[in-house]
Amino acid sequence: WVPTKREEKYGVAFYNYDARGADELSLQIGDTVHILETYEGWYRGYTLRKKSKKGIFPASYIHLKE
């Protein structure tokens, strides 16, 4: 896992994603996520609506905010 280059990196989910394991994070369309790390097509972070739950999710489900 590699920390993100920018201190504040955010994105928005444009697909729903159902977590398949305890380390994964479920997403709903429109969720804003804070991205902490990246690795081979995956991000690690949390949604702003539930900051206490961190997990991994596919990068392809996220539109990055500039």
Rank of each mutant, 00 (worst) to 15 (best):
W1E: 07
W1F: 08
W1N: 07
V2M: 11
V2H: 11
V2C: 12
V2D: 08
V2R: 13
V2Y: 10
V2W: 09
P3D: 09
P3W: 07
P3G: 07
P3S: 07
P3E: 09
P3L: 04
T4K: 07
T4H: 09
T4A: 15
T4E: 07
K5V: 09
K5R: 13
K5L: 11
K5I: 09
K5P: 10
K5H: 11
K5C: 14
K5M: 10
R6E: 12
R6I: 11
R6K: 13
E7G: 15
E7C: 15
E7L: 10
E7P: 11
E7K: 11
E8G: 11
E8T: 09
E8V: 10
E8K: 09
E8R: 09
K9R: 14
K9E: 09
Y10W: 15
Y10Q: 05
G11I: 05
G11M: 05
G11P: 00
V12H: 05
V12M: 06
V12S: 02
V12L: 05
V12G: 01
V12E: 05
A13Q: 02
A13D: 01
A13L: 02
A13W: 05
F14P: 00
F14V: 15
F14Q: 13
F14E: 08
F14A: 14
F14T: 13
Y15F: 12
Y15N: 14
Y15W: 14
Y15H: 14
Y15V: 15
N16W: 08
N16H: 09
N16M: 07
Y17T: 00
Y17G: 01
Y17E: 00
D18E: 14
D18M: 12
D18I: 14
D18K: 13
D18V: 14
A19H: 01
A19I: 03
A19T: 03
A19W: 01
A19F: 01
A19Q: 02
A19L: 03
R20Y: 05
G21F: 07
G21E: 09
G21R: 09
G21A: 11
G21N: 15
G21Y: 08
A22R: 09
A22N: 10
A22Y: 08
A22C: 10
D23Y: 07
D23E: 11
D23C: 13
D23M: 08
E24G: 03
E24Y: 05
E24W: 05
E24F: 06
E24M: 04
E24H: 06
L25C: 05
L25S: 00
L25N: 01
S26R: 04
S26T: 10
S26C: 07
S26P: 04
S26Q: 05
S26I: 04
S26W: 05
L27Q: 01
L27A: 00
L27C: 06
Q28I: 12
Q28E: 10
Q28P: 00
Q28R: 15
I29V: 12
I29H: 04
I29D: 02
G30Y: 03
G30I: 04
D31Q: 04
D31S: 05
D31H: 02
T32Y: 15
V33A: 01
V33C: 03
V33N: 00
V33L: 05
H34S: 06
H34Y: 15
H34E: 05
H34A: 13
H34Q: 06
H34P: 00
I35H: 00
I35Y: 02
I35V: 05
I35G: 02
I35F: 03
L36A: 02
L36V: 06
L36E: 08
L36H: 03
L36C: 14
L36W: 03
L36S: 05
E37D: 07
E37G: 06
E37T: 05
E37C: 10
E37M: 07
E37H: 07
E37Y: 08
E37A: 10
T38L: 08
T38A: 12
T38M: 12
T38K: 15
T38W: 11
Y39M: 14
Y39T: 10
Y39N: 13
E40G: 13
E40N: 14
E40C: 13
E40F: 08
E40D: 13
E40A: 13
G41S: 07
G41H: 06
G41Q: 06
W42P: 00
W42V: 00
W42T: 00
W42F: 04
W42N: 00
W42Y: 05
W42I: 01
Y43W: 02
Y43S: 01
R44D: 00
R44S: 05
R44N: 03
G45L: 05
G45W: 06
G45R: 03
G45C: 07
Y46T: 04
Y46N: 05
Y46A: 02
T47G: 01
T47W: 03
T47L: 15
T47M: 11
L48D: 09
L48T: 09
L48N: 09
L48Q: 04
R49H: 12
R49G: 14
R49E: 11
R49L: 08
R49D: 12
R49T: 12
R49C: 15
R49Q: 11
R49N: 15
K50V: 12
K50G: 09
K50A: 14
K50Y: 13
K51N: 09
K51V: 11
K51Y: 08
K51A: 11
K51L: 08
K51Q: 10
K51G: 09
S52T: 11
S52Y: 12
S52F: 13
S52R: 10
K53N: 09
K53P: 04
K53V: 12
K53F: 08
K53Q: 12
K53T: 08
K54M: 14
K54I: 15
K54Y: 12
K54F: 12
K54S: 09
K54P: 08
K54A: 08
K54E: 09
G55P: 00
G55A: 02
G55C: 07
G55D: 02
G55M: 03
I56H: 03
I56W: 15
F57Q: 03
F57G: 01
F57T: 01
F57M: 03
P58N: 02
P58A: 05
P58L: 09
P58D: 02
P58E: 02
P58Y: 06
P58V: 06
P58H: 04
P58I: 12
A59R: 09
A59G: 05
A59E: 04
A59D: 03
A59P: 02
A59K: 14
A59I: 09
A59H: 06
S60W: 07
S60P: 05
S60Q: 13
S60H: 12
S60I: 11
Y61Q: 04
Y61N: 06
Y61V: 15
Y61L: 13
Y61D: 01
Y61W: 04
Y61T: 10
Y61F: 09
I62R: 00
I62E: 01
I62Q: 01
I62D: 02
I62V: 08
H63K: 14
H63T: 11
H63A: 11
H63G: 07
H63Q: 13
L64C: 09
L64H: 03
L64F: 09
L64A: 02
L64M: 06
K65Y: 15
K65G: 08
K65F: 15
K65E: 11
E66K: 13
E66L: 12
E66D: 12
E66N: 13
E66T: 14
E66R: 13
